[in-house]
């Protein structure tokens, strides 16, 4: 009880400090705020440059994608690595590679963990079978159309991973692993990061900076560096989507089967 009281006091103090800080914020969407208009006499504002120039420089209408995958590509690359590391951490902690161990004791089927009876399984299974192809096609659209509409590698990758999780939830984990085996998804996760890193390293070999996509016009044979940047963003998004999809499914498979990759949900 004492811990709860002190935690509540800490939360209230933190909330009060945050509210006090919010009072100094510029208004929502204020074009004259320092973040949008820059400081007088200082450097010009970065967001003004993105808003005015990013379409001319990259031919990508979705400002968010061009900032994420091009101007701030280095951050996005290591965000992907963070997701990969999270998946690896779960793998290292939970995965039991000694396959001759007996399966863990099945948990007692008490009222407590009764979620889905057998009579409902056919409804759930059929609904999942109908939904999965639609989810996957929409996910591919989200990845491929991330330049022009909201979306991109992270969102599309999560949806692709969720479609495989849905296979496991609607049927069982064995069916899902038959479609996307453990070897495959761990390789795909690494491949995604390697694709991203390749888009960084190839410009270096052509004498430019890491992730400076503009120079790739010599490889993509586009007319001008703008379209090369646009195409490279698509490639980078595909890499992110592969990693995110594999890691989402890897985390679920490890968690739900307690690292055995058999049985499970």
């Amino acid at each position: 009880m004492n811990a709860k009281v002190s935690a509540t006091i800490a939360v209230i103090i933190t909330g009060a400090v945050l509210l006090y800080g919010v009072a100094d914020f510029p208004d929502f969407g204020d074009p004259t705020s320092p973040a949008n208009a820059g400081v007088e006499g200082g450097a010009p504002s970065a967001s003004l440059h993105f808003i005015n120039e990013s379409y001319k420089e990259t031919k990508v209408p979705n400002l968010v994608t061009s900032v994420l995958a091009d101007y701030r590509g280095y951050d996005t690359m290591f965000e992907t690595v963070v997701i990969f590391a999270a998946g690896l951490a779960i793998f290292v902690i939970l995965r039991n590679l000694r396959s001759d161990d007996p399966l863990p004791e099945p948990l007692p089927a008490t009222e407590d963990r009764f979620i889905d009876g057998d009579h409902q399984r056919i409804i759930v299974g059929t609904t999942c079978r109908i939904a999965i192809p639609l989810v996957q096609i929409f996910a591919l659209y989200v990845v491929a159309h991330g330049h022009h509409s909201p979306g991109g590698g992270f969102q599309g990758g999560v949806m692709l991973g969720a479609s495989f999780i849905l296979v496991a939830l609607g049927g069982n984990l064995r069916d899902a692993l038959a479609r996307l085996g453990e070897d495959t998804f761990m390789r795909l996760a690494s491949l995604g990061i390697l694709i991203y890193a390749a888009f960084g390293l190839v410009p270096q070999f052509l004498g430019r900076n890491f992730l400076d996509y503009g120079v790739l016009e010599k490889i993509f044979l586009t007319d001008g560096p703008e379209m090369a940047r646009s195409h490279s963003m698509l490639g980078v998004e595909v890499g992110v989507a592969l990693t995110v999809m594999s890691i989402m499914f890897a985390i679920f498979a490890n968690l739900s089967s307690r690292g055995e990759m058999r049985g499970g949900l």
Partner: peptide, 21 residues
């Protein structure tokens, strides 16, 4: 979009998978 996919979707599933075990 990200929040709908990750926060409301996948993380709930991961919580449920953990609770079942």
């Amino acid at each position: 979009f990200t929040e709908a996919a990750v926060g409301a979707g996948v993380s709930t599933v991961l919580f449920v998978a953990t609770i079942l075990n």
